[in-house]
Design a protein around this nucleic acid. Structure first.
Lengths: 241, 241
DNA sequence: CAGTGGTCTAGACCACGTG
DNA sequence: ACGTGGTCTAGACCACTGC
């Protein structure tokens, strides 16, 4: 009866944490069916309702998916899913734009700038890897992007033969880093010479600048990304609830 | 026991609907304490857990606020609340920018354009009221804004002596229209002559353009708004979960 | 048909805020 | 001390899925 033995946190929160650890560690892999509510309840010595609440929280956070009659599954972050989950650009007709990447270039580990350290919560002298690429829409360049990642979290990423179009998918599968949230800071800027060359537009053209910080489950920043977008009739959609 | 008499919808959903109607109609006013879980359960002939779930849904939608030890309250949309709930502009230090309004100008009811009809889901020949204003930040103009509202939903709004800075607060109190969600479409544009004059900037300056549609509880569009923003170091923050 | 998640109940106790 | 929302239990039945 609600003895709160371990800590003073509610039972369902403790169960949630244990389940979360299994997802994070990969013990339960993306797409996998997890045990049913009664089995989980029995394992942790709680009632079905309490197990249900823990599962419900993770489902609400988008990490589990319940399907009536079938079971509960670990959410699979396929490249397509990831692309449309955090890429908020839509064309004039309201159809999602699916970007591709070209000219992807990944630096070796270098000392982070003060700005990068602040954005990523890094200590003095920490190293980052920088990725730059041009993103295309129907083969036309429309975004110039540069990304900074803490080297410590992504060992060996600079040496990879191929950097995929959808990074967050790679982060989860290869490094166990699950991006669950991003903060995008948007503003309007005039294209400088570099951006104008990459996007084949005139210097001074208004561009949408997106400064993104991506966060993991425990709210730690893991990626800083600056995107300069020549949207040409498309737009960035922000839904406010 | 789960007889599902009225319809096939769950009991908690039916209770939620009845509670919602009281908020929407103003029977329960903003800021008011509502009856406790047991009183609501008794009134509708359900268990406390079911009443709790109905209340929880409305709390999750931001319409009720539960406070342990005190009770459950109808959320009060004070001008300040409304301002910060949907106004996503922050300065370089991450502090929310609180805009003011000047030169507010409200048209009489006029026939809506095709574009306005599409955005607001209006029939052919429907009328709208248009409001234009300049929004300031520490007395400096930084946003040129134009708003279209369906006349049918806001009778007499054009004749009001004063249009307040925070419109959604007015919508709820004077017209029973509760804005719960907005879609903002963002892009970058060059300032034209009109915007440049209003914002005291050079023609061609890059501006952040925000095209907003605001929705009520039943997901009907009730406002279309175009904001041209000269952010000058500030940014629009979009949180993606 | 069996097994899953989804709903619902009745009752208990805990944690918080106020008087 | 009292009343509130918050947690937890044990057990029941419903609705959906797939064999």
């Amino acid at each position: 009866m609600g003895v709160m033995d371990e800590t003073d946190r509610p039972l369902y929160a403790q169960v949630r944490e244990r389940l979360l650890e299994r997802i994070r560690s990969g013990a339960w892999k993306p797409g996998q069916l997890i045990p049913n509510e009664f089995a989980i309840a029995a394992e942790f010595g709680v009632s079905q309702g309490t197990a249900r609440k823990a599962i419900g929280e993770l489902a609400g956070e988008g990490l589990l998916r319940r399907r009536q009659g079938r079971g509960t599954f670990v959410v699979e972050h396929t490249p397509a899913d990831v692309l449309f989950r955090f890429f908020n650009v839509f064309d004039a007709a309201g159809v999602a734009v699916a970007p591709d990447s070209r000219d992807t270039c990944c630096s070796a580990a270098v000392t982070a700038t003060a700005q990068e350290r602040a954005a990523l919560g890094l200590d003095d002298g920490a190293e980052v890897v920088r990725i730059t690429r041009t993103r295309t829409r129907q083969s036309t360049p429309f975004i110039a992007e540069s990304i900074a990642l803490p080297s410590a979290l992504f060992p060996g990423i600079a040496g990879r033969a191929e950097i995929p179009n959808t990074l967050y998918d790679l982060f989860q599968r290869a490094y166990g880093v699950i991006v669950v949230r991003t903060d995008d800071r948007l503003s309007a800027v005039a294209a400088d010479g570099v951006a104008a060359a990459a996007l084949a537009i005139a210097v001074g053209t208004p561009l949408l600048k997106i400064e993104r910080i991506a966060f993991t489950l425990d709210d730690r920043p893991v990626e800083q990304r600056v995107s300069l977008c020549h949207l040409a009739g498309a737009h960035y959609l922000a839904r406010n609830r």
